[in-house]
């Protein structure tokens, strides 16, 4: 656990305490359960976004991927009667293809990640709207899929399964990032691609894999979101979600310059974002202000972090100087 993660954890507890003091409902099981569900949903794809950011890239297409794959999933299961395990496999397969496409365009054709995924954002959203002719995709009336529902929107002991899924994904990705050779290479490629290449690392493969991981986690999130909302409105479903993911990753200590980040940090970032949403609701702040609150808190957090880091460096320099001057 890094220092930044601990700081973020403290911030979450402080904000939580303040909200609780104003409105004790904050800690009610219902509220906690609902918030945990949202943390799970948003955390799933924020982790993927974090991996891309660690390579020094960015994936702006996440929200549109969630809309497009959500529409396809609902239609496959609801309209065409595809067995849901097969539909899940197809959706994840599509996620792999989307990630590969992004990664190959970025590494082989040397396009900038921002441009590639911005085009992705427009294309996938456009296809989703065109395919459905702007109509909402939904499950037929009265249909039910007990196992699928248990896996996605079910709860055990009050804990939503989306949250558990996110924890499992986070645990796996934590091992991948911090304890596998791939994770080491990811950090190296993000910071100094040339050095990584000189060291014999297949930098293209590492970068492509980061985009694949991001798109696959987005596709899993797409299924969870589709099951959560039960119907997918192609023009608004998943709007701005890529920005939530980027915000969570940046709050969690990922540097947009690449090479830095931690999975625990990203998860905590997702927790803080949902806590802020919750704060807006519980404190009776008009929900139209919710973006403004989130933006202000992120800005203050990043600013405070930077000031604190500068303060620490100053202190340690002073200490070192003090030691030198002592005879």
């Amino acid at each position: 656990m890094q220092k930044k993660d601990i700081g973020l954890g403290i911030l979450i507890i402080v904000v939580g305490a303040i909200v609780y003091m104003h409105n004790p409902l904050f800690l009610s099981p219902i509220n906690l359960g609902n918030t945990a569900n949202l943390i799970g949903l948003f955390g799933l794809f924020a982790i993927g976004q974090g991996f891309v950011i660690m390579t020094g890239g960015i994936d702006l297409s996440v929200g549109s991927v969630i809309a497009l794959l959500g529409v396809l999933f609902v239609d496959m299961v609801g309209k065409f009667g595809v067995p849901w395990p097969l539909a899940v496999a197809i959706i994840i397969g599509l996620g792999v293809l989307i990630g590969l496409a992004h990664g190959i365009l970025i590494t082989r054709f040397r396009l900038q990640p921002f441009v590639v995924t911005l085009c992705g954002l427009l294309i996938y959203r456009g296809i989703a709207r065109g395919y459905t002719a702007e109509s909402t995709a939904g499950f037929p009336f009265g249909s039910s899929y007990p196992q699928l529902e248990w896996l996605t929107i079910g709860r055990s002991f009050g804990v939503p399964h989306s949250f558990l899924a996110m924890l499992i994904v986070a645990a796996v990705m934590w091992v991948v990032l911090h304890h596998t050779v791939f994770g080491r290479h990811l950090c190296a490629v993000g910071k100094n691609e040339e050095a990584a290449r000189f060291s014999g690392i297949n930098t293209r493969f590492v970068t492509v894999m980061a985009y694949v991981i991001c798109a696959v986690l987005a596709s899993i999130a797409a299924i969870y979101f589709a099951m959560f909302t039960k119907s997918v409105q192609p023009s608004s479903h998943g709007n701005f979600y890529e920005l939530y993911a980027i915000a969570a990753a940046v709050l969690g200590g990922c540097s947009l310059r690449g090479g830095e980040g931690s999975v625990i940090g990203i998860v905590l970032g997702a927790v803080l974002l949902q806590e802020l949403q919750n704060l807006v609701n519980l404190l009776g702040i008009p929900s139209s202000l919710n973006f403004a609150v989130m933006g202000a808190v992120i800005l203050l957090g990043v600013l405070a972090d930077q000031q604190f880091a500068a303060y620490r460096t100053r202190k340690s320099t002073e200490r070192a100087l003090g030691l030198l001057q002592k005879p």
Partner: peptide, 9 residues
């Protein structure tokens, strides 16, 4: 010359 080293590691 530029050392081929990753600063963050």
């Amino acid at each position: 010359q530029d050392l081929a080293i990753c600063n963050n590691l």
